[in-house]
Structures are given as C-alpha cells and as structure tokens.
Design a protein around this nucleic acid. Structure first.
Length: 495
RNA sequence: GGUCCUUUGGCCGAGUGGCUAGGCAAAGCUCUGCAAAAGCUUCUACAGCGGUUCGAAUCCGCUAGGGACCUCCA
C-alpha cells in the first residue's frame, strides 16, 4: 500500500515517494525556547512524532531534524529590532543562555512525557551561526540580497520575478508589495516585502555575533534553511510545522534555499492546524494559552482537573491533524475516559486466550480482520489517526465480551486473535505512541495490592461484606479502584 | 481591505455523492451481596436558501455565523 500525504505546496494528496528509496529526510520547526510550551505546541510535535514513527514502521530509515530556536527573533520587524530571548532574559535577570537552558529542559521534559521519540538531530540556532552567515553570503553573491547599515535583506521582488514566491501560502506577490500598512523603520528595505537575513544589533542587545556586516544576529528564517540544508541536503523529503508558519517563515525558507542551492528544498510540505479555545486560536497573541505544566497539574481556571500527557496525546490523535481542534476541559475529560477504556481493552486482549481453529462466528471474525486491515489503510491516507482509533474502538466491545463470556470463546479463530494482539500492539504503542498511564510497575505496591485482594476475597467468601466493602471504599478514597470480575477475580487500577 | 478555510446530533469529533464513523454524556435492561466495570438496546445529525443529479453532509451558487493568515506565533 502506498502512503499518501497532503502536500500543502500542491494542495492535494500525493503518493509519498522518498528521494532516496528507504530513506526519508524530515525537518520540523521546533520551539523558540524563550518561554514555556503550551497546548498548541503539543500538536505539531505529537503529529510529526506519529509521522516519524509510521515512516519508520514502513521500513524507512528516517532522519528527523527538529531545531531549537535559541537565538533571537524580531519582536516586531521593522521597529526596534529586539532579540526576543535577550529581552526576556533582561526582565528576568537571567543570562540568556540560562533562560534558554531552562525552557529547553522544560520542553524536553514535556516531549518525554508525551512519549515522543527524540529527533535524530536537534540542532540549535546559536550552534549554527557560521552556517547561517555562509548562506547569507552565498545569497548576496547570487545577487538576491543586499546590505544596509549592517543588516542584510532578501530581495523578494527580484526573486519573485523569476520564481513563484507566494505559492506555498497562496499569496499574490503584488498584494504584498502594495500593502498599505505603515511600519516604522522600513526605510532600510528596498521593498516592504523584503525580509531580514541578518540584523545589526543595537548596543543593548545581549545576543550578538560577529559577521562580515558587523555585529548582529541572524534573521528569523535563515536558521531553518541553514540547518535543514546542512543535515538533510539541498533537497529533502518532508518539511513540517504549524500552519501559522506557512507565511512568511516557510515561504521565505523556500526562497532562501532555492537561491542558495539552485533547487527547491522540499518535496512535501506538511502543516498541522491550530488548537483553538472557544473557537479562537490558542496563541500568545490572544493571551489564551494553557501551558503544558498547567495541563499536567490542573492548575488553571479553565481546567476542572489535571490531565495526563497521554490524555492530551489521545485527544490530539482523535482528530485529523489538518483540522482545527477545539480545546475544552470537557473534551479532555471525554478523551481521558475514552483512552482508559481503549487501553484497558487492549490490556485484556493481550491476556486473552480464546479462539478456535475455525471461527464459530464467521461474520465477526471477518469484521475483525477487516477492521485490522483498515488500520494501515487509514494511516496511509494522510495519517488518519481518528479513523484508526474509531476502528480500534469497534473491537473493544468484542474483546470485553470475549473476556466476560458474553461471546463464546470460540467465536473467533486463534489466527485472528493472534493477529489482533499483534496489530493492536503495533498500532497503539509503536505507531500512535500511546502508553500505559498508571503503573503497577512498582513491585512493592503490587505485593500490597495482592495481599489486600486476597483478604478481601476471603471476606467475600465468608459473606463478610463489612470487611470487603471497607477495603474497597478505603482504596477508592486514595484513588485506587477495585473491580470485582465475573470469575471471582479482582482487578485494580489507579484513578 | 486582501487571500483562504470552516459551519455535522447535548458535547468533542470522522466523513471518499448512494451503505449506522467513533468517543463522551443521557435513558432502559442484563450481570452483581452492593458497587464499579462490562455487555446489549435507545438517541440518526449535517447553518439557511436555491441549483446540478436517479440520488448530496459530500459538487455549484447565494445568504448568515465562526475562524486563520497578511506582524512574533506550533
């Protein structure tokens, strides 16, 4: 089966063919570590983690590059060029690199909790100043950039004359050139559509580097082009990021790399949509973000409780990555319950030991095989994780019914059961990256629970319900749920 | 103002012109010492109007609402 990816550049689904068979180069725009990550940031990294996992599952050797932006961006281009990282650092009375380290650590911690696999290479902007300067020099020598007062700008008008500037973001260059809005400090640029490759640093600027044009810092877009080129080559397979980066960031990346390397850098552009809150994009401009630390702790007015990273991962996977996804505490509660149910069914499945040589219920057996086969079809169809989960849910009642004896043990064949176990594990753990929420991986705790369950079983068999209820109620009070099962067994789990 | 997207049942959300997406919530039943869990059943929607079609949530047009980008943003 062929994987199809929706290419933002062509605006249609295309069969994915790697440049080098069996190898995939993928670049995803990483965070600016000048502040804490919020829920909106979780989406691209979870989305592209699944892309990474699935491409690997399909037998590709994937080089996944995701940068850390630790050098300054412009607070507002054209106005006083401010180094975002530097500015905040001064406010907080921290060394810039101390601040960068703090938020980088927090970001890594969150990524780990989401069970995201680390990228193959995680380059930093500050570690690639030389590469960026080299690239700018190349663009100047090609005649597509010019220097003014220690800053360097990309000549968009000249580029647009021979290239399709605006194709990715669906923009018309003439409209950009005619924008009426006035910004201060535009006079340096030959044209308002031009963007900075290098900015001369004001004296108070903390982050600054020597360059052929004087001391300054790199422009917003050049770091990604420089690092992508360095690690993935002049042309690579996939470039991902949030939809809000399409313009100007990605559009500019295309322009820079195309001039520098004489070819378009990216074969497939992938953009995830935004997470919204009350229908509005979650973002710092709207002042409506919920930080990941707040989500994990429940410490936010809009949250009714704390949410586990897996709940958030599941929540995100329940929608398609190109749709907006509306956040609410209720929606997360629903995801938490849904994930719990699915995961429990999955655990039951792995312990299930039923089946017959020939399925007793041919129709059911057939359905299961179809549901299982469809999992990969859905993933091949531009990573339709929502449909994958829906199919898995179709099988949950079957699993539970087999366990409870509502369905005869020989309803399905042993071959089907075996396939089911294998597919569930592959899809849920390896591809979707889901993992168990609460651990009974603590041996001491497990031992104590075994003991309590033993005592309770004894009490129950003597019809001593006072004792048995006491055990169950007190465990409930500390967040451990005991469930009596059909066969007289008991299972437990953390709230 | 320009460009583009979107509007699905109480809520969240899939949806390729014809066949019940799924989840959460709710109601009833079964099981159960009581619970919980689980199973079964019920709840059939596509903003409005018009058009194309044998047939439209799905295509086209208009109207209304919401949103994104055009500036830092995942």
């Amino acid at each position: 089966m062929a994987l199809k990816i929706y290419n933002s550049y062509s605006r249609q689904k295309e069969v994915f063919t790697p440049i080098t068979p069996g190898h995939v180069g993928m670049y995803v725009c990483g965070p600016t570590v000048s502040g804490e990550s919020h829920l909106g940031h979780a989406r691209p990294y979870i989305t592209f983690d699944v892309v990474f996992r699935y491409l690997s599952y399909k037998g590709n050797k994937v080089r996944y590059v995701r940068n850390i932006t630790d050098a300054g961006h412009f607070e507002e281009e054209g106005r006083e060029a401010e180094d975002k990282v530097g500015k905040k650092a001064q406010l907080e009375k921290l060394e810039p690199m101390e601040l960068v380290q703090k938020y980088t650590n927090l970001y890594h911690w969150a990524m780990k909790r989401f069970n995201n696999i680390e990228p193959s290479i995680e380059p930093t902007a500050t570690g690639h100043i030389v590469e960026q300067i080299n690239m700018i020099e190349k663009i100047i020598s090609e005649g597509y950039a010019y220097e003014v007062n220690g800053s360097v700008y990309f000549d968009v008008k000249k580029y647009a004359a021979g290239h399709d500037y605006g194709k990715l973001s669906g923009r018309i260059i003439d409209d950009l050139l005619e924008t009426t809005r006035e910004l201060e400090g535009q006079e340096e640029k030959r044209d308002r559509a031009d963007f900075a490759l290098w900015k001369s640093a004001a004296p108070e600027h903390i982050m600054r580097w020597k360059s052929p044009w004087g001391e300054g810092f790199p422009g917003w877009h050049i770091e990604c082009s420089a690092m992508a080129t360095k690690y993935l080559g002049p042309e690579f397979d996939i470039h991902g990021g949030g939809m809000d980066l399409q313009f100007p960031h990605h559009e500019s990346e295309i322009a820079q790399s195309t001039i520098c390397n004489h070819q378009a850098p990216v074969r497939y552009w992938m953009h995830n949509n935004m997470i919204t809150i009350n229908g509005r994009k979650m973002g710092k401009s709207y002042n409506n973000v919920i930080k990941l630390t707040e989500l994990f702790s429940g410490n936010h007015p809009l949250l009714t409780q704390a949410f586990h990273p897996m709940t958030i991962r599941f929540f995100i996977l329940q929608s398609h990555y190109r749709s907006t996804l509306d956040f609410s505490s209720e929606a997360l509660v629903a995801s938490e319950k849904a994930f719990k149910r699915l995961w429990e069914a999955y655990e039951v499945l792995q312990k299930l030991d039923v089946g017959a040589a020939v399925a007793g219920n041919a129709e059911l057996d057939e359905n299961i095989n179809r549901w299982l086969a469809e999992l990969e079809e859905f993933l091949d169809d531009d990573f339709s994780t929502a449909k994958v989960l829906a199919n898995l849910f179709e099988m949950a009642p079957v699993i539970n019914a087999l366990k409870d004896g509502h369905l005869p043990a020989d309803s399905i064949s042993t071959a089907t059961l075996k396939l089911m176990k294998e597919r569930f594990k592959t899809v849920m753990e390896d591809i979707l990256g889901l993992e168990a929420v609460s651990g009974a991986d603590n041996e001491v705790l497990q031992g104590i629970m075994d003991l309590l369950i033993d005592i309770r079983k004894e009490a129950k068999s003597k019809k001593d319900f006072v004792t048995s209820d006491k055990i169950r109620n007190q465990l409930t009070a500390i967040g451990i749920l005991l469930k009596d099962e059909k066969d007289g067994g008991m299972s437990w789990g953390m709230e």
